[in-house]
Structures are given as structure tokens and as C-alpha cells.
């Protein structure tokens, strides 16, 4: 994990963003020494959302292909954990689950090539529902039950696994952003036909982008399943999990790497805060904050920072649209 990051540093032309991330990761990894167990658990949960939101925005951010398949890969990861958890250590389960998600995403990517815009969105959404209902049907028909226990894993181990995944996904996200591959993704978002015209293999870029954005979700699903102890198809393939990264990324601002991170962190934290302090009115306040935030911060939380920065520099252009 550390070698990966330092390699990222070497490749970087600007030291600041990766350097800061590295510092943050080191601080996070030292956290268990300083804070209480529950704080770790809470941060662990927030980081899992950060990973999912960052993963999602690797593909959907630049291309504009809104994918609602997150819950599918997350759920597959959970089932991987329930089935393999007794036989293999968690990091290995996560790797297997990640690779499986990657391969399944490749296949889905190839199938859905023709679909654009909201048709792609609904297809990915249907995928989640299909898996949920199919697995439910299979479980009832063949295993005669519905849910499965997930072998429990020490939460600190889960935390470090999640942290490792975060490091990997941040690195990938950063490298993609700076690479020709990232430019190709943006090109597809701006005009797919034009991108194809200038010699970008849009098919390959799209399928690969979709797969890359899926593997970490599978890995996180496998890790987080150990935190729920028991799963059934309804719990594993929860469609809220598909909407969450979308909401978080838009909330934070989609066009930058920090956007989804901040969006996910604030979103997840706000939810936890409201749900424990004012459970009676949690949903109302949460909904109201969402509406107000969108109305007054249409470019997401990071959009406002960008705006301020731009204004100080005197540049009048709005870069976030």
C-alpha cells in the first residue's frame, strides 16, 4: 500500500494533492491509537461511502453515464463475504470479490454498449433488482432459507482493509485524472461521436472505465458485510446503495476528485449526526438540507470553494458547468 502511494508521488507533477492525501492516509492509519473504538467504526463506515462515491465518479463523473449498479457489486461483495468468509482471510475475500466485480462489470459493459443516457441508467438499475430477485428465488428454492450469517472479523482489521482500498482507489482516481485515459473519458462525456471521430476507442474506454469503477465497490461490499453479521438479498442488494454515491457525488461536486470525497464524508457524517441526535425528525431535516444545499450550491460543496478561488484570481469563467 505504501509503495503504491509513493509511486503515485513520483509520477505526480504537482506534489500537493497526492502529498496531502498521503498525509491524510497516514493520519487515518494511526487513528486507532488515538480515538475510541466507536469512532473507528464510524470513520470506517464514512470511508466506505467515500470509496464508493469516488469509484462511482471515476466513470460516471466525466462520461455522464449515470450508473445505478453500485448496489449490485456491493451486494455481490456481501455474498462473497458470506460464502467465502469462513474459509479465507478478509483481504483475500476482498481481492476475489473485487476481481469478480471487475469481470462482471466487463461483461455488463460489453452488453450495454449500445445504451446511452438514461437508458443505461435504468439498465444498471434493473441489474440490481434482477440480482436481488434472482438470488432470493434461488435461495428459497435451493437452500430453503433466505439469509446467511457473515463470519465476523475484527473491526480494526476491517478498518485497515478499507483504508487500503481507499488508498488504492484514490491513487487510481488520481492517475486516471491525469492520464490520456481520463481525457478520453471526459471526451466521451462531452461528445461521444466527436471522441470516436478523433480516434478514441470509445467502446474500450467505456467498458474499462465502468469495470474500474466497479471493483472497489465489490471489495468494500465484502468488507462491510462483516459489519452487518447477517445478510439476505434485500439487505445486500439495497437500492439505496445505488443512489447514495450519486447523491454524494453531486452533493460534493462531480468535476473534481475532492468533490465526491467531501460529498460522501459530509453526507455520511450528517446522516449519522441527525439519526442519533434527532431521530424523530431525521428524514425531514435531511431532506430539507439536501434541497437547500442544491438550491444554493448547485455545483456541489466543492463548487463553492472553486468559485471563491476563481473570484480571487479574477477569472470570471465558471469551470464547473
Amino acid at each position: 500500500m505504501n509503495t503504491n502511494i509513493s509511486r503515485g508521488r513520483l509520477n505526480a507533477k504537482k506534489i500537493a494533492p497526492p502529498g496531502l492525501s498521503l498525509l491524510a492516509l497516514i493520519l487515518l492509519s494511526l487513528l486507532p491509537i488515538f480515538v475510541t473504538d466507536y469512532t473507528i467504526i464510524k470513520i470506517n463506515s464514512i470511508i466506505s461511502f467515500v470509496i464508493i462515491a469516488v469509484s462511482w465518479s471515476i466513470f460516471s463523473g466525466p462520461t455522464g453515464y449515470i450508473s445505478l449498479s453500485t448496489a449490485a457489486f456491493y451486494g455481490l461483495g456481501m455474498y462473497a463475504s458470506a460464502i467465502l468468509g469462513n474459509h479465507l482471510p478478509l483481504p483475500l475475500v476482498m481481492v476475489i470479490s473485487g476481481i469478480a466485480s471487475f469481470i462482471i462489470a466487463l461483461i455488463i459493459g460489453v452488453i450495454t454498449l449500445r445504451l446511452r443516457g438514461v437508458y443505461f441508467t435504468i439498465f444498471t438499475f434493473g441489474l440490481v433488482e434482477l440480482l436481488r430477485n434472482l438470488i432470493l428465488w434461488l435461495e428459497i428454492k435451493f437452500s430453503g432459507t433466505r439469509g446467511r450469517f457473515v463470519p465476523s472479523v475484527d473491526f480494526q482489521q476491517v478498518f485497515y482493509c478499507i483504508l487500503g482500498t481507499l488508498a488504492i482507489i484514490l491513487l487510481i482516481s488520481y492517475l486516471i485524472k491525469r492520464s490520456r485515459f481520463g481525457l478520453a473519458l471526459i471526451g466521451i462525456g462531452e461528445s461521444e461521436d466527436a471522441a470516436a471521430h478523433i480516434g478514441i476507442n470509445t467502446t474500450l474506454v467505456k467498458v474499462l472505465g465502468f469495470s474500474i469503477s466497479s471493483f472497489a465497490v465489490g471489495a468494500v461490499g465484502a468488507a462491510m458485510a462483516t459489519r452487518t453479521n447477517y445478510i439476505d438479498p434485500g439487505i445486500a442488494f439495497n437500492m439505496l446503495m445505488s443512489f447514495m454515491p450519486v447523491l454524494m457525488a453531486i452533493f460534493g461536486g462531480m468535476s473534481t476528485i475532492p468533490g465526491p470525497i467531501i460529498g460522501a464524508a459530509v453526507f455520511a457524517y450528517l446522516e449519522e449526526l441527525l439519526i442519533t441526535k434527532v431521530p424523530e425528525y431525521f428524514m425531514i431535516i435531511f431532506g430539507a438540507i439536501m434541497i437547500i444545499a442544491i438550491l444554493f450550491l448547485p455545483n456541489g460543496l466543492t463548487g463553492i470553494a472553486g468559485k471563491l478561488f476563481k473570484r480571487r484570481k479574477g477569472a470570471g469563467k465558471n469551470a464547473n458547468t
Binding site: I66, I250, M283, G287, M290, I294, L295, P298
Partner: peptide, 24 residues
């Protein structure tokens, strides 16, 4: 919201907020 794409995304978010509020 200036662009059509951003409007669609944000409008969906608002309707999510509405969903929470109405249901609650």
C-alpha cells in the same frame, strides 16, 4: 443552474429531498 445536464442531476436530488420530507 446554467446547464441542462446539471439541472437534471440537481432536480433529481431535490426530488430525493422531497421524497424524504413527504414520506416522513
Amino acid at each position: 443552474t446554467p446547464s441542462a445536464g446539471a439541472y437534471e442531476g440537481n432536480a433529481m436530488l431535490i426530488s430525493f429531498g422531497l421524497m424524504f420530507i413527504i414520506q416522513s
